[in-house]
Amino acid sequence: MRPFLDLFSLLSILKFLAAWMLLLSFALLAQRRLLSLIHLLAWQGITLALSTAMVAVLTGDRLLWVSATLTLSLKGLLIPFLLHRLLRRLQVRGDVEMSLNVASVQLLGIVLVIFAFALAAPLAGSLPAATHGMLGIALAAFLLAFLMMITRRKAISEVVGFLAMDNALFFAATSATLGMPLIVELGIALDALIAFLILGVFFFHIRESFENLDLHWLEHLRENQ
C-alpha cells in the first residue's frame, strides 16, 4: 500500500498518540470518579487502536489492521461497556477512596516516568530509530497503571488498573517494536477478556459476602487475626 501521508507526519502522529497515552495514564491516576475512570479507559483503548492503525499504515502489514479493529472493538468499546453495565448493576456510587492524596500520587508518577525513561534508554539502541521514545512511554504507562492499582481501594478501580496495564503492554508491543504476530495479540486480548469476566463474577461474590466492594474487607480473610 502506498502511504497517503509522508513518513514524517505519520511518525509525528504516532508520537502524538504516545504522548496522549501517557497523559491518559496520568489522568487515570488522578481521576476519583468511577464513571470517569471507565471513560478514560475507553479513550486509552481507542488511542491504542489508532496507534496500531498508524503502525499498520507505516509498515503496510495488513494483519495489523485486523489487530487495530479488534483493539478498537474490544478495548475501546466492549470492555468499557461491560464495566459500565457492571457499575450500574452493582449500583456503585460516589468517589474512589485513595490511600494517598492525588498530588503525591502525581508526583510519584512523575518520578516513575523518569525512572522508566532511564530504564528504556539503553534498550532503545536495539529498536528502530523512529520509535526510541515509545518504549519509555509504554514502560511509564505500565508503571503508572501499577501505581494506580496500589493506591486504589475499590475493586472496580483495581480492574481498571489491570486493564490499563494490559493496554500499556500492548502499546509497547505494537508501537515500540512495530507490530507483533497476530496470534500473540489475539491471545493477549482473549486473556484480558477472560480476566475481566472472572473478576466480574468475583465482584458479585465480594459484594454478596461483604455488601461492599471496598477491598479492605478482604483483610479479614487472612489467616491470623
Binding site: F146, M149, I150, T151, R152, L218, E219, R222
Partner: peptide, 13 residues
C-alpha cells in the same frame, strides 16, 4: 502478610 491487596501489589511493584 497484612491481607491488604494494595500492599501485596506494592510488593510485586
Amino acid at each position: 502478610q497484612h491481607g491488604k491487596i494494595s500492599s501485596y501489589l506494592l510488593y510485586a511493584f
